[in-house]
Simulated scan of single mutants.
Amino acid sequence: MQFDAQWLLLALAPVFLACIGWEAWHLSRTRPRTAPNAAAADNARYTWPDTLCNAALALMHQGADKLAWLVAVPVYAYVYRHFRLVSWQPGFVAWFALFVAQDLLYYAFHRASHRVRWLWAAHVVHHSSERLNLSTAFRQSLMYPVAGMWMFWIPLALLGFTPEQVVAIVLVNLAFQFFVHTQAIGKLGWLEYVLNTPSMHRVHHARNARYIDRNFAGVLAIWDRMFGSYVEEDAREAPDYGIVKPLASCNPLKATFHEWLAMARDFARMSGWRSRAAALFAPPDWCERHDALGLAPVTAAAAHARHVVPENDTEAEFGSRNP
């Protein structure tokens, strides 16, 4: 991959803004506030508080990301120089291997971000809006470097890809995902079996019981089907966006830090190192399930959340939208 992805993303910035402008115009014409199902229509529309919050979060994330690469790139370089398993010849085969490997690692990162509270504390920012439109793609956390997102790409250096290639493919993967954050595009036929699509990603952002913690794809849809996390969007059940306990704020600082503060409080109230470690690294709803067993007081909000967020596949696979 012989190009600088930073320049690619800079070139795409006007495209992203143009797409947001088109979507806002399109939604204002096709989904008016006076529609019979006004609530469903409104969660696609743009509002200034939500959109400005998304923009502020994007700027904060970009600043943190640039600093994170200063730490991550030397780590990738060290692993590449001393431990790489393969030396690739430039060409399509190397690019395809890099693309598939990174997309699989993104799936692993994304799924872990819903199952490990430390990672969820950063990722919850992206899910905290009760709207879904293209500007939601900008809703990212400056805490991703602290959570450890960059560590998920170390295996790419081990597989013989240079730090420049690692950074490039990560940014390209994230750029693709901008286009799936929309309600203006329906299902895309056979592409639903191959790529992450708007329909597939609407499910991922929903907090409905049957949709929650599903569809973790970056670019390729195959991983969700292979690993049992795929759910199809059902026309009979419109996605309800957001997290189980609504943030109820467009303050970017609150969006960024509310789960870190909640996690710190839970850590402080737990007794014993096992419980404290679980408060940080167990699934996001572990503390409430811990309370439900009578090991700590059960609050009304916790009791309500246990009824709102049922199990999906297994006892462990539920409830990550609960900050």
Score class of each variant (00 low, 15 high):
Met151Val: 12
Leu132Gln: 03
Val93Tyr: 03
Asp103Glu: 11
His123Thr: 06
Met151Leu: 06
Leu119Trp: 07
His123Asp: 08
Pro145Asn: 15
Pro90Glu: 02
Ala77Lys: 11
Tyr76Pro: 11
Phe92Pro: 05
Trp120Cys: 11
Ser129His: 05
His127Arg: 07
Trp153Phe: 05
Val79Thr: 08
Tyr76Phe: 12
Tyr106Pro: 14
Pro155Ala: 02
Met143Cys: 15
Ser113Pro: 09
Val79Gln: 09
Asp103Asn: 15
Met149Gln: 11
Ala147Leu: 07
Phe96Asn: 04
Val93Cys: 00
Trp150His: 06
Val100Asp: 03
Arg131Ser: 12
Pro90Tyr: 04
Val79Gly: 13
Leu134Gln: 09
His127Lys: 09
Tyr80Lys: 03
His110Leu: 15
Arg117Gly: 05
Leu132Asp: 02
His114Lys: 06
Val124Glu: 10
Ala112Ile: 03
Ser87Ala: 09
Val79Lys: 03
Arg131His: 11
Ala94Leu: 04
Arg117Cys: 07
Arg111Phe: 08
His82Pro: 00
Trp88His: 13
Leu142Cys: 10
Arg131Phe: 00
Thr136Glu: 12
Val86His: 10
His127Phe: 01
Asp103Pro: 08
His114Tyr: 07
Gly91Lys: 12
Ala137His: 01
Tyr78Thr: 10
Met143Gly: 10
Tyr144Val: 05
Ser128His: 04
Arg117Tyr: 10
Phe109Asp: 03
Arg131Asn: 13
Ala112Glu: 02
Ala147Thr: 13
Trp150Val: 01
Ala112Asn: 05
Ser87Gln: 12
Ala77Trp: 07
Leu105His: 09
Val146Asn: 07
Arg117Phe: 03
Trp118Thr: 13
Phe152Glu: 13
Ala94Gly: 11
Leu85Ala: 04
Tyr76Thr: 14
Trp120Tyr: 09
Gln102Ser: 06
Tyr144Phe: 14
Tyr78Leu: 13
Ala108Ile: 14
Ser129Trp: 03
Tyr78His: 12
Ala121Asn: 10
Val116Gly: 12
Ala97Met: 10
Glu130Trp: 00
His82Ile: 00
Tyr80Val: 03
Pro155Thr: 15
Pro145His: 10
Val86Arg: 10
Ser87Val: 10
Leu104Glu: 02
Tyr107Thr: 14
Pro155Asn: 06
Val125Arg: 01
Phe152Ser: 08
Gln102Asp: 06
His123Ser: 07
His110Lys: 12
Ala97Val: 15
Ser141Thr: 14
Gln89Asp: 13
Phe99Asp: 11
Asn133Cys: 01
Arg111Pro: 02
Ser135Thr: 06
Gln140Thr: 14
Arg131Leu: 02
